[in-house]
């Protein structure tokens, strides 16, 4: 179709506006020299950013979020890699049921997962804290990571693995010399995106952290006080920039590899 459709184009651009503009208000007001977020802007200041350096609880929450995020993303990406391989590679009995089961945490309202984990955790006599949050995040990130990895592995030519076996490598050698290097961009993308999901996750953390706040929990706590809002804005702006950077990196990685594979297939045909 070579014709243009300017009505649709304008609509699409407006939609982009709808998606982006609200998020952009955070950084704008984070430099505003006032406690209220209203126009006209009062004046430029970086004071809200400087304030972040001195907040002990903020640093603690940041560290907690990083710990939870790293463990959850590494574990869920590992589990997801195995699972993605199984789905992309084999046809087996109960495939659909297993797929549904692993995707389930992604579909079920998060509050239900949170409440269910809360009930069992407390009844087992454990203390709430970062451990149950990490478990919840791992559960929640696995389907995400799996979707990313399946997309990666599905385009994968499994005869490469067979070729490696045929050329005398055993299963482990094949994994490290052939599969892993070729999956790598997908794996890194899955790691980064899972980390971001965990880093930003709120509901599971809300029910399960107890007294060890993660970063979103910290922000939630601050949001109640009007005088602390500007500092939440600054923190939010930093998080948005950080997240955007990581996500763009992940997408770029995913596409770099994917493009190569596609070109490969194109040449083959």
């Amino acid at each position: 179709m070579n014709e243009k459709n300017s009505t649709l184009l304008i609509y699409t651009l407006l939609y982009f506006g709808f998606l982006y503009v609200p998020v952009l208000f955070l950084p704008i007001f984070s430099f505003n020299d006032a406690n209220y977020m209203s126009f006209p802007l009062a004046g430029f200041t970086t004071e809200h950013y400087e304030e972040m350096w001195s907040k002990r609880n903020l640093h603690k929450a940041l560290w907690a979020s990083i710990k939870v995020g790293v463990v959850a993303s590494v574990v869920s990406t590992t589990f997801a890699l195995f699972a993605a391989k199984a789905f992309a590679r084999y046809t087996f009995r109960g495939e659909k049921v297993s797929y549904g089961a692993i995707m389930m945490p992604f579909l079920i309202p998060e509050i239900i997962l949170a409440v269910a984990i809360l009930v069992i955790w407390v009844n087992l006599g454990f203390k709430l804290g970062l451990v149950p949050v990490t478990i919840g995040h791992t559960l929640f990130c696995t389907p995400f990571a799996m979707l990313i990895l399946i997309a990666r592995i599905e385009g994968f030519d499994f005869s490469l693995e067979e070729a490696s076996r045929d050329l005398g490598e055993n299963a482990w050698g094949t994994f490290f010399r052939v599969s892993f290097p070729l999956y790598l961009p997908g794996i890194v993308a899955a790691l980064l995106l899972s980390f971001i999901i965990s880093f930003d996750e709120f509901i599971l953390a809300f029910f399960l952290t107890g007294s060890d706040a993660t970063l979103p929990m910290y922000m939630w706590g601050q949001m109640r006080f009007v005088q602390k809002l500007p500092h939440v804005l600054a923190l939010g702006a930093v998080i948005i920039v950080f997240t955007t950077f990581i996500v763009l990196l992940a997408f770029w990685l995913r596409n770099v590899g994917q493009g190569k594979v596609k070109k490969d297939i194109a040449i083959k045909l």
């Binding site: 030519d157 490469l160 067979e162 070729a163 490696s164 076996r165 045929d166 055993n170 052939v178 490969d264």
Partner: peptide, 20 residues
């Protein structure tokens, strides 16, 4: 015997050249 222990080698239909 698994493939890596056999005295055979194969030329694949799509050649399966390692792209990396």
């Amino acid at each position: 015997l698994p493939p890596d222990k056999r005295p055979t080698n194969m030329v694949f239909q799509n050649y399966a050249i390692f792209p990396h």
